[in-house]
Design a protein around this nucleic acid. Structure first.
Lengths: 211, 211
DNA sequence: AGGTATGTACCGACTGGTTGGTACAAATGG
DNA sequence: CCATTTGTACCAACCAGTCGGTACATACCT
């Protein structure tokens, strides 16, 4: 018996999955309760990992925060942003509208709870923790850049009015989406999100040529 | 000497001003550090008030939070919102644009630090503290209502396109402003706010008649 | 093969400091 | 003199982080 490893009892953790269990529990808790208000003990209880073990895998709570953030950034870029903007079947402006819908859908899926993890952390930490502020600025900058790129591409194709300033429009779109998510989370009313997406589409049509 | 009262030494507090000193220090600290991450001891140190004294004036930290929020709501409505929207020298849409400028100015004044106190608290607490969520919903609802009212008034005057749905537009404007403030606070770049205000004005002009 | 050393993964008790909140006596003032 | 107002000492719970120790697989030495 017991051929080789402990062969998966009720826990079955090896180095790799322990780190992932911590990451999973922590990002879930921090998304809802914030960074400061999520204690290590909460994370440990939720993930079933002991304290000494935690400090074997992470050197501090701050480093855990960075790890979660880096993971969330990668997953946002790869699983939410890119799928919309690399769809070759849509023209750039349609890609942007598709992204609005995706954000709307996510808020509906999570029942208006949690909001945007990046927006929450930005509100909580940008003024008190420069390390987090910088990392958060990176996500928003990547997001902004993807929108700017799509707008430039639309202009190149002749879909966009000349009066459109892509960088300003992109900033406004990011801001509007973040604000809409926040307002939806506060009111717990998904129709707020719907209305905002409708108005964002109208705003975009302001610059659109040959619809 | 010492005629009657302590005659204003370095402290000079009576019942009224102690409460106000606590309120002032707490709202300043909470605006930047958030509710959970501002400790009573911080507030006490900053205001020079003793602990027993604090608990004479407030029955808990939670009640202090409510008091601060109520005070901030009243001051926002009276000193920021109303002045813009009760100006009889401007037409409703101009009042709205004036409000955009006011928000922009405030962010510039506070050097992109602090963001919106209500937005910050909404992000921090809407999912974990129903009491705060409800109170915060009240401010945003009042704000939303004031915008809706101005839009209806504009429509009555014939300044507004028929296709404009005031409630949806108002939600979008609130969301955009909140998002713009958040993004400005994160990037620490006031030009983000400028760009957003410019685009909001363009958006508004979508519905405007006879400019 | 058998003993020893090494690196990885893990645990739970403990520490020093902070938290929100209480007890209570002293001062203040009409 | 009695209400209000205040300062100080204190508490239990909680916080991030440390410590000593265990379990076990692999590598190394003779």
């Amino acid at each position: 018996m017991a051929t080789k490893t402990a062969a998966s009892g009720i826990k079955a953790r090896d180095g790799r999955s322990t780190r992932e269990a911590i990451l999973e529990a922590a990002s879930r808790l921090i998304h809802v309760h914030g960074y400061n208000h999520t204690s290590l003990d909460d994370v440990l209880r939720e993930s079933g990992v002991g304290k000494g073990n935690f400090y074997y895998h992470f050197k501090s709570k701050e480093e855990l925060g960075y790890a979660i953030l880096d993971q969330a950034i990668a997953s946002f870029l790869a699983e939410t942003l890119e799928p919309c903007f690399s769809d070759p079947g849509r023209r750039p402006l349609a890609q942007i509208r598709c992204f609005f819908d995706r954000v709307h859908e996510i808020q509906r899926e999570q029942n208006c709870v949690g909001g945007c993890a990046f927006g929450n952390l930005a509100a909580e930490l940008s003024d008190v923790h420069e390390g987090f502020r910088t990392r958060l600025a990176v996500v928003f900058s990547a997001w902004h850049e993807r929108l700017t790129q799509a707008l430039h591409e639309a202009h190149r194709r002749g879909d966009l009015h000349d009066g459109c300033r892509p960088e300003a429009v992109a900033h406004f779109l990011v801001a509007s989406l973040e604000g809409a998510i926040l307002l939806t989370k506060l009111t717990k009313d998904i129709s707020v999100m719907e209305q905002c997406v409708t108005e964002m589409n109208r705003y975009l049509s302001l610059y659109e040529l040959g619809a």
